[in-house]
Amino acid sequence: MSITQILFWVLTAMAIGSSLMMITRKNPVYSVLWLIMTFFAISGHYLLMNAQFLFIVNLIVYTGAIMVLFLYVLMLIDLRHDTEPRKNKWLKFAGAVAGGCLLLVIVAALKDSDIKSNVVQTGEGDIGLIANLGKALFNEYVVPFEISSILFLSAMVGAVVIGKKE
């Protein structure tokens, strides 16, 4: 096996293992930390495909921003007492069925796609580099890109306005 293959299997095992740990932990703070591990592993996959920009965006957006906010909220809640209400047995069953349905749909969608003939290029290919990504965003997807950036800007301005006292 080449180094790339070894890295791929290590990262994949890490992603699946830590996401399993994430859903089985009792303590929500541990769940969030395992989820951060999962995001790290997935970011590593981007790096194997030479998509360095996506790698770092995945890190900064998910682990650097969203997960930090999650941690922030969870740590302010007093979790030490065992006050969590017992979950209904049927609720667990329904959850398993719903998750299974989602898995079925994803598998069915992937089965018919041409994913088997499209092998991922590892360590080469420059589609994920920032210059190509920028050209694609500003040529083909310029309107949705600009609209979403206005959305973010308005959220930021809104936060400043709410923070201002009257």
Partner: peptide, 9 residues
């Protein structure tokens, strides 16, 4: 910038 934002974790 991205990596340094992780130290807060």
């Amino acid at each position: 910038t991205a990596i340094s934002s992780l130290s807060v974790i």
